[in-house]
Nucleic acid binder design. Sequence first.
DNA 1: AGTGGAATTTGTAACGTTTTAATTACGCAG
DNA 2: CTGCGTAATTAAAACGTTACAAATTCCACT
Lengths: 347, 347
Amino acid sequence: MSQETAPPEPKKPIGRPTLRTIAEMTGFAVTTVSRALADDPRIAKTTRETVAEAAREVGYVPDRAARRLRTGRTQVVSLLLNTDHEFLGFTHEILAGITEALRGTGYSVTVVPDSLRGDRLEQVREILRNHLADGLLFTRTECFDPRARLMMEAGFPFVTHGRTEFTEPHAWVDFDNEAFARMAVERLVARGRRRISLVPPDDRFTFTQHLRYGFVSAARAAAVDHEVIQDVTIDQPMSQVAEILRQRCTEADAPDGYVCVGEATALVALGALADAGVVPGRDVDLVSKRASPIFDHIRPRIETVFEDVRATGKVMAEMLLRRMEGEPPDQLHHLFAPEGGFSMPPH
Amino acid sequence: MSQETAPPEPKKPIGRPTLRTIAEMTGFAVTTVSRALADDPRIAKTTRETVAEAAREVGYVPDRAARRLRTGRTQVVSLLLNTDHEFLGFTHEILAGITEALRGTGYSVTVVPDSLRGDRLEQVREILRNHLADGLLFTRTECFDPRARLMMEAGFPFVTHGRTEFTEPHAWVDFDNEAFARMAVERLVARGRRRISLVPPDDRFTFTQHLRYGFVSAARAAAVDHEVIQDVTIDQPMSQVAEILRQRCTEADAPDGYVCVGEATALVALGALADAGVVPGRDVDLVSKRASPIFDHIRPRIETVFEDVRATGKVMAEMLLRRMEGEPPDQLHHLFAPEGGFSMPPH
DNA sequence: AGTGGAATTTGTAACGTTTTAATTACGCAG
DNA sequence: CTGCGTAATTAAAACGTTACAAATTCCACT
């Protein structure tokens, strides 16, 4: 409006376009441009269109730092990554799911190490204190997970992989490990097995309880012998698991069926059995959960149920987005069923 | 100065401490505090100490958004994550290494999806244009990697996992795959194998050339038959690899030794051989690289060389830190040797 | 006592955005 | 015409930090 004939305009020869760039292009004030881009109804529809057009033309992208400074929102979500253990693709898959859900939202995901050794809360506290993220995702959830408690107290958005036993609701995504364990037992029983064994995860995790319950109750219902290995968990070094299994599978009352919670455990169990000269499919059977396609190629073939970790990550991130928009956590949870049941690899 | 007697001062009842908090505590100006915390020699030593003490007392942590807005530095590094393939712990390990190196530096790492399908440059361009990070890490490097080229042109700090063939130097970390391939061939030859096969990665990757060269030249030197499988690469679906191997290993001139580049390939190869009734250790031998401890438990046992992916991530991140501080890339590279050579799992 | 200069400190502006409060324009009833 | 409510836009302030230029203090030396 100020002038019809454009002055020399030797301005901003470099640098990304900013609100001011668009303001000068269109003749509106910076405030107006900001509001127009936010589709604020107080701004005239025609103005909004003009501004949007100009923004598109110069490829305007709001500056994250400036927005963050002003609004206090970081546009970041963090994933707590357990650095102790190997999960054969778990991290990869869950991150693929998370980034897929976040694509186009402007949010990015940072990875924060989280060791079971040492204080699990330290990292979370730092994120809360220094506002390093707008929301948090974490796995390996405990029954009364102190991280979850801390974040509920702080009113900070988060989604857990795995449930807790708090009465106050929070967002979670989980795999139905109870159903998995039940099906696993039934499958082994259907194959004629009568002494069934489970190598459990660490007792502190909620899903360990689910597994154990499903396992024990299905075994009781089928009236078969069963045991939950006592001296070792799959969260200890795999060599220890192998050691215990090698020993156990040659004892007089050795199990004839094994339920494995994950791929790593299954591989270790297969190795231990092989070392002891026990032949899967003949002497014993083994069933497992699987999270990657690699299991189709493991020999001897074993029956597995697929847990879609990528989908898990995707749903977790989607839920977190809704939480961060203020949606209450009451309805935000999803339980993945062991879909399709057990199956043997093809060919 | 306006008033000597302090007014009611109903200020900042809440919120994190800021530079102003410390300024008011110590009586210095905000600028001084800022400089003092940066250990600027222009500020008196005593002042620096006073300020540091006050900062410690209130637990001051600089606001990232404000600093970022002012300086233009994001305090973020990004890792390009290939979402197509499964690497059995690769992602987990490299991230563990990266976060370990970044601990305490104030930098955090974001994960950005990067698919071989589609434009590999899109994500990088966005990071450059919108200043989403101060530095970039990526894997699966190609000979004339367009991502590397783009970033060299932009003068943007980055470290690759794997070398390129550009003449202009850049920071890289790599595993000596040529030496690995050479040793692998020698190991198979030492076991009496005379027809050796390699299932290669996709030809576009630089390390494929290294592998191929080491493989071929060692085989020639040992005067043994050798072949690089033509019809499939380990970057195609694993079922295709399995299919080809199942077929190949029963032909009249079937190989009697296999070099596997990674755990996934080795497992698939073991499965394919088993399906075809070929017995490793008797009919053929198989050697592989390994990046996780899981291979100690795979049966039949095969000899492996360890590639320390966690250490790789750590070194990459450390290099990136130095690059971001302005150090030229000339000397910034590290080649991991296949240390210790091949070994058989214990027990 | 005066002066130059180093040492130390400080006020102001800026980064790009959103928010608060204020301003302008305009149609319409009194 | 005046006054006024509403719609549309805007100027100014603020978020917390660092950079620039200027101001102040302190000494040593003439």
